[in-house]
Computed example of a mutant assay.
Amino acid sequence: MKLDPETKKAGTEPFNFMISEDENYNQEHYEMVGEAITDHVYQLLEEQLHMHKLPVPSDYRFEHRSFVFVTKDVFVNTEKLLVLVHGSGVVRAGQWARSIIINDSLQAGSMVPFIKKAQELGYAVLVTNTNDNDRFLNGKRIVIKGSSSPKEHFDFVWKNYVRDCKCKHVAILAHSYGGLLIVEMVEKYFSEFKERVFAIAFTDSVHSITGQKVSKKVSDFLQKVSINWVASDLPLDTAVKTPHNEITRLSAGHEKHEMTTWSSFHSLFRFFEDRYQHSREKQEL
């Protein structure tokens, strides 16, 4: 894609990966941009959305630690909590897709608009950082204890932070591999999820109820409280063929995997609010 020089505006040119004949240099340049994006998104979460970090693990004796971002009301909000879980790869807390941030917009590829909307609706918010698993010092990889893998990271966050939240109603939004991770956690902490989690929204999740050998009680629970918005060329919210015993699939209204969370934005929050009202009504009976 090339822009007419006469109509170019500052900041509107698309990202250009091929800036050199040296492929290694191009890749290094791309990764440097990615690291800058990570720092910028962290800054937005702290300065624009007034979130703060909680360490993973919380023991300050560990030199190398990861962290999550939370809103200031995370331990005092007694009503609603939204937990955001990105997919695998290079993305870090606050990002859905680095490639979308680079090639489309921060709005479409980051969690910023989701956090803003959640806060408007009265949710406390917790943003996981499941891919932050190690540090490299002097060419040596140092694994972060308590966050050595996405599973260990979320496990720590659930046991040490979500459990301590006073929110009676917990919702989860998980993209791609994050969906597989959540299914595993529901299996592990089923009684807690059943008691507190009123809605789980997946966006093009890569989980498999059959492949992960999910128990019937977990499968039934997930089918009751969850929807998976999947990549599709069908209009948004159109029913997509769903395998037996799987979570209901609806079209995300976009064929690109990385765009499914942003393209489903309004549907996701409608789903959360509908499920929340249902949960409140059930509680009052």
Rank of each mutant, 00 (worst) to 15 (best):
K2R: 03
L3Y: 00
P5A: 01
E6C: 01
T7V: 07
T12H: 07
E13P: 00
F15L: 04
N16K: 04
M18V: 12
D22H: 09
D22E: 09
E23I: 13
N24R: 14
E28A: 13
Y30N: 02
E31S: 07
M32T: 10
V33P: 05
E35F: 01
E35P: 00
A36P: 08
I37D: 09
I37G: 06
D39L: 15
H40G: 06
H40I: 02
H40C: 05
V41I: 15
Q43L: 08
Q43C: 08
L45K: 07
E63Q: 13
E63S: 06
V70G: 07
V70P: 06
D73W: 09
V74G: 03
N77E: 05
L82K: 10
L84G: 03
H86A: 13
S88M: 09
V91H: 05
R92G: 13
I100T: 15
I101H: 02
I101R: 02
N103T: 08
G109I: 14
M111P: 15
V112Q: 06
F114A: 07
K116L: 11
K117E: 15
G122R: 00
Y123S: 13
V127S: 06
V127N: 03
N133P: 00
D134C: 14
R135M: 10
R135I: 14
R141L: 03
I142F: 05
I142L: 12
S147D: 06
S147G: 09
H153T: 11
D155L: 09
D155H: 13
V157D: 09
V157Q: 01
W158P: 05
N160P: 01
N160T: 11
Y161M: 14
Y161N: 05
H169G: 00
A171N: 07
I172G: 07
L173Q: 04
L180G: 11
L181S: 06
Y189A: 05
K194T: 12
E195Y: 00
R196G: 03
A199S: 15
I200Y: 06
D204C: 11
D204V: 10
S208D: 11
S208G: 10
Q212D: 09
K213T: 13
S215T: 13
F221P: 05
V230Q: 02
A231L: 03
A239F: 11
K241P: 03
K241C: 02
P243I: 15
N245M: 12
S251A: 10
G253A: 10
G253Q: 09
H254V: 12
H254N: 15
E255Y: 04
E255R: 05
K256A: 10
M259T: 01
S264C: 02
F265W: 08
F269A: 07
E273W: 07
E273L: 09
R275V: 05
Q277E: 12
S279H: 12
E281L: 12
Q283S: 08
Q283T: 08
E284G: 04
L285Q: 04
L285T: 03
